[in-house]
Computed example of a mutant assay.
Amino acid sequence: MQRPVGAAPILVANAGSSSLKIRIVAPDGAVQFAGMAAEVGGASRLVLPAGSRAEAIVDHAAALVALIDAARAEGVDPDSVGAVAHRVVHGGPDLAASAELTPTVLSRAQAAATLAPLHNPPALAVISAAAERWPGLRQVACFDTAFHSTIPALGWRYALPDLPETRDIRRYGFHGLSYASLVARLPAATGRPLPRRLLAAHLGNGASLCAILDGRSAATTMGYSPLGGLTMGTRTGEIDGNAVLDIARRAGIDRAAAILNRESGLRGLGGASDMRTLETAGTPEAAFAVAHFIHWAVHHAGAMVADMGGIDAVVFTGGIGENSATVRAGIMRGLAFLGLDFDEASNGRGGPVIHAPSSRVQALIHAADEEGWIAEEARRVLGWP
């Protein structure tokens, strides 16, 4: 059938390792439908505007079908969409911008699946399911690694020899869609030009920092994979390579991967991956986990500021960054040596905002909106107004 274009909505698909979020976005940015399939392949459930319900969802392809059916049940016609846009975590070394999913782009994303084994395969499964559901419909891939393609070689190259065994082992960086959205939208949100030296903190179950210099990524804490850098919900963050090898020798590679990616971080230290749970737990282990998260955020922030030669603003985004006053205050105290001063105040939208009334350094909160940014990116790639 002839697909509508230009004025048609875009379906945004954001696939995680065990989840799928979709959003149907009108040309004016209005959200026609939003929903999520959680715990795909396990104790799965649909999270919808009307509430959450258990539903058997065996894989990501089935998750897409279930969410499309849910949209239709809410009066939104999924067949009205003119394109599907996907968050694809890893674009590999050759994809430095969002792109329409031609056979060449798709093959490169497939090749990069070995670099992001927890993230790319689910996205590729949803891409395939969308192609089956809407044959001939244009699809766009928005890569989380693309924003960091501006990091200089001194920042992305590990001190490894150039060997076949080390090919493509380099720092890629992630959360790029969140950072790109922040760069584009922060000036309108603050009414001020984008700060030249911006320390951005995307803090959530996955967490990273980015040094944004003149609107471009200059350094970031995540590296070859989303495992590196800060303490995270279930990931270790920074860990010595020989320690990883030793865990693999003791437990085997697959078990080591599970420990490092799914059983470590806040969960491994405090017994829970959710910051809200830890902040109210009242146990020494939980308090240590929160302190560990803050300590390593401050530790890595110092390196990001050094890479920029100073700092003009810090901005918090992501679930923890936007909602945990405890974490923000701890990080700001750790950065007090930079001359930051701060107060918490209401910004009129029901959430906190940080400001620095006696300092030259702005401190801000900005809501993450990866799905909204993906929709905007897709329209640009497709040449739609």
Rank of each mutant, 00 (worst) to 15 (best):
V31N: 02
L20R: 06
A272V: 00
S44E: 04
G339S: 06
A287P: 00
A97Y: 08
A125V: 10
E371M: 06
G268C: 04
E100L: 13
E285A: 10
P49H: 02
A219C: 12
N347V: 05
D254A: 15
I331F: 06
L209C: 13
I22D: 03
V290T: 06
L67Y: 05
E100H: 08
N347W: 07
A303I: 03
I253M: 13
G351R: 15
P164T: 09
R170C: 09
Y179H: 14
A7E: 14
R87S: 01
L154D: 14
A336W: 08
C210A: 15
P226S: 02
G204D: 07
G282C: 05
S107H: 09
D28M: 12
R138H: 11
L335R: 04
A289H: 04
P121Y: 04
M332L: 15
A184V: 15
I10N: 07
E370K: 14
I374L: 11
S208N: 11
I365S: 00
A272Y: 01
W384A: 11
T150W: 06
V88L: 13
K21Y: 09
G339C: 07
D59P: 07
V290Y: 00
S107G: 05
G334Q: 08
D343T: 01
E100N: 09
V84E: 03
R138W: 08
T317C: 11
G16W: 00
A116Q: 06
I169M: 13
V76D: 00
L340W: 10
N120S: 05
E371A: 07
F33A: 02
A289C: 04
I24R: 02
A61P: 09
P135M: 10
A66Q: 04
F316G: 04
S178A: 15
D341F: 07
A258L: 13
N14I: 12
R133M: 08
V381C: 13
L199R: 08
